[in-house]
């Protein structure tokens, strides 16, 4: 959080210095851009904290449950069960009417947490598998992942916006006469900052998210005492995956499985380890099966596929 505000301070000061000639007699008496950037940072942070969950839910088109629909009633029952198993209060439940199977948890603490699943997930999974997914989301709530992830989501949006703004200002004034008067060395850090900041922020979100996904899988197994349910759910989600149109780069790390369906998530290796928002799905499934006592060699796709056959029978 502090880093976030400091970062905005640096950008604001740099913009002041380079474009507006502040801190010199000729420029404005007041560092306008610094104050603006700081104000923007503060308001984004506050908004992220108080309204972040609702903003994320609204961006996904999440709607309240309709208890007339049997599937929704079943979902509510499953969430109640998992709230009991984890010993936390009942979260708010939302459904997003989208065919892509996915789920996420958001909120700032366990009292105002919310779980959102897609309609696709409800039709694709049976009760046991839904239970595994909900247990995974409850684990995010209980392990205090949701606050960080929600904040990162909203702040990431802010940073991307600001860096776009800075970049445009920079290229736009390339031909301007102001540039000539300052040493080009001064531009380098600003340029780097602007170019790399979204990447750095995203790397941070991803690193946090990937470790927490493993932990949430393990905690889910502890709640349901049934790691096989979540493993089968992940298999079905993997096989039935399609891009979730309403998810964006800012919200991707919140989901149980990468909604943007980037190739990286299916690979393993150093680069994928660095850039993917989610750990390799095969590895997660294999680890869950191992917990269930059905040993599976990790990174071997053929045997994991073999278990699909078992499931169908």
């Amino acid at each position: 959080m502090g880093c976030f505000i400091l970062f905005f301070f640096a950008i604001g000061t740099a913009v002041d210095y380079l474009y507006l000639d502040a801190f010199t007699p000729a420029g404005p008496a007041f560092p306008v851009a610094t104050v603006l950037a700081l104000g923007f940072a503060a308001s984004t942070t506050l908004t992220a904290y108080y309204r972040g969950a609702d903003m994320i839910l609204a961006s996904l088109g999440a709607e309240k449950l309709n208890l007339q629909i049997p599937e929704h009633r079943e979902l509510q029952n499953v969430v109640t069960e998992m709230a009991l198993a984890s010993g936390s209060p009942m979260p708010r439940i939302f459904v997003s009417f989208d065919p892509a199977p996915n789920a996420l948890a958001t909120g700032t603490n366990e009292k105002n947490a919310a779980i959102c699943v897609t309609a696709g997930l409800l039709t694709l999974l049976n009760r046991e598998e839904t239970q595994g997914v909900i247990a995974h989301e409850m684990s995010h709530i209980r392990n205090d992942d949701i606050l960080l992830m929600t904040l990162v989501s909203v702040l990431l949006g802010g940073i991307v916006l600001l860096s776009d703004w800075g970049r445009r200002g920079f290229y736009g004034s390339q031909s301007g006469r102001r540039m000539g008067r300052k040493s080009p060395l001064l531009f380098l850090p600003l340029l780097l900052l602007i170019a790399l900041s979204p990447l750095i922020a995203q790397l941070l979100a991803m690193a946090v998210s990937r470790q927490r996904e493993y932990l949430a899988d393990a905690t889910a197994a502890q709640y349901t005492r049934n790691p096989g349910g979540l493993a089968r759910a992940l298999e079905r989600i993997r096989d039935g995956a399609m891009p979730f149109s309403k998810a964006s780069r800012g919200t991707a790390h919140l989901f149980i499985m990468d909604p943007l369906r980037r190739r990286l998530d299916e690979r393993s290796g150093a680069l994928a380890d660095l850039l993917a928002t989610h750990p390799p799905i095969e590895r997660r499934i294999a680890l869950l099966y191992r917990m269930a006592g059905i040993a599976q060699p990790i990174e071997d796709r053929s045997t994991v596929q073999g278990s699909n056959v078992q499931r169908v029978q």
Binding site: P70, N77, T80, E81, L84, A85, Q131, R225
Partner: peptide, 19 residues
């Protein structure tokens, strides 16, 4: 409907007991 109600009650009982 009744079966779903009873299923969830049985499960909730099991999870409450586990906790």
């Amino acid at each position: 409907d009744l079966q779903e109600e009873l299923t969830t009650t049985e499960n909730q009982l099991a999870f409450a007991r586990q906790y």
